[in-house]
């Protein structure tokens, strides 16, 4: 029913998109960031907000609402008016995975405006362990070594378990606070394996950590020759993207105006936000918008539900 209504609303409003440039916010726009102050997501969101103010003359008021992978922010965002003056900044995982564990939100509750950047999801180990690939991990486990895998969330923990089962080995899972916590655990030898979404870059660069596999659908910028999980027969894509969302029911006009404004900044090679993304989430900004983005999220959610079902069985 929800879907039908949404589709009807879209149809009814699609005629309005010709006037996309006409929409202007009536007062300040609140930008709710789904993660804590000072982190990578926060920095990116605030930079973007500042540049939107410069290019469009809008007033943006960023605010952090952290917790549960952005779900805490989303639960509040859902109840706001879809007038373009309350926006959320989070990652795709917030919408294609986190709703499974929440009574409050579902992927249908939101309008997906645009993505900004993509992760460089990798399976990592300390270089000193000598492992170069997942096969080395398997060999070590079979030789009797206890493996501890650092995970920051349920989705990646499930992913780690999928890999372990596929390799036919046992790993113990260590839950850490945030992506940085997972890396710290592996560097501090509290764990042997970890995920990294992008923050691992300097540690890999310094030779401290080694990338064992890409967990994206593509090869990673830092390890172009290391295969993806899919290439090794593990059907898993844990890559995520940074995303700007709004409550559901937003008109296409507003949605597209905001998406255009963001795209203008991300496509400008001089912009600070783009430079930040190029460095932190290489190689370049990832822009996906409109109905295509919506479909990606909804399909991703269905795929994740399947993955979790398969795990429980």
């Amino acid at each position: 029913m929800k879907k039908v209504l949404a589709a009807a609303a879209m149809l009814a409003l699609s005629t309005g998109s010709a006037f996309a440039a006409d929409w202007k916010p009536d007062g300040p726009i609140r930008l709710w960031i789904g993660y804590g102050a000072g982190g990578g997501t926060d920095v990116q969101a605030r930079m973007l907000a500042k540049e939107l103010e410069q290019t469009r003359g809008w007033i943006l008021v960023p605010e952090n609402k952290s917790g549960e992978d952005g779900a805490v922010m989303s639960a509040q965002l859902k109840n706001e008016a879809p007038d373009g003056q309350t926006l959320g900044f989070a990652i795709t995982t917030t919408y294609n995975f986190a709703p499974m564990n929440s009574d409050n939100i579902s992927p249908e509750d939101f309008t997906y405006i645009t993505t900004t950047a993509g992760s460089q999801m990798a399976v990592l180990a300390r270089t000193s362990s000598g492992w170069k690939s997942l096969d080395d991990v398997k060999a070590a486990a079979e030789a009797g070594e206890t493996l501890v895998w650092a995970n920051w969330g349920t989705q990646v923990e499930a992913g780690a378990e999928v890999i372990a089962r596929k390799l036919g080995i046992t790993v113990n899972h260590l839950r850490t606070a945030g992506g940085k916590g997972a890396l710290n655990a592996v560097v501090a030898e509290d764990a042997n394996l970890s995920w990294g979404g992008g923050v691992q870059r300097p540690l890999v660069e310094a030779g401290e950590l080694t990338i064992l596999s890409s967990a994206e659908s593509t090869h990673l910028v830092q390890a172009p020759d290391t295969p993806t999980l899919k290439e090794q027969g593990i059907d898993l894509d844990l890559g995520y993207k940074y995303i700007i969302v709004a409550p559901k029911g937003m008109s296409d006009e507003v949605r597209d105006t905001i998406a255009e404004a963001v795209a203008e900044i991300l496509n400008n090679p001089e912009s600070e936000t783009r430079k930040f993304i190029e460095k932190q989430y290489p190689p370049a900004p990832v822009i996906e918008t409109g109905d295509a983005l919506r479909k990606t999220i909804i399909d991703g959610y269905a795929a994740n539900v399947e993955m979790m079902k398969a795990l429980v069985e």
């Binding site: 952290s66 917790g67 549960e68 992978d69 779900a71 805490v72 986190a98 564990n101 929440s102 009574d103 409050n104 969330g153 349920t154 989705q155 923990e157 839950r175 606070a177």
Partner: peptide, 9 residues
């Protein structure tokens, strides 16, 4: 508030 298990708040 937030939990480490991912089971929601």
């Amino acid at each position: 508030g937030t939990t480490l298990s991912g089971n929601g708040v």
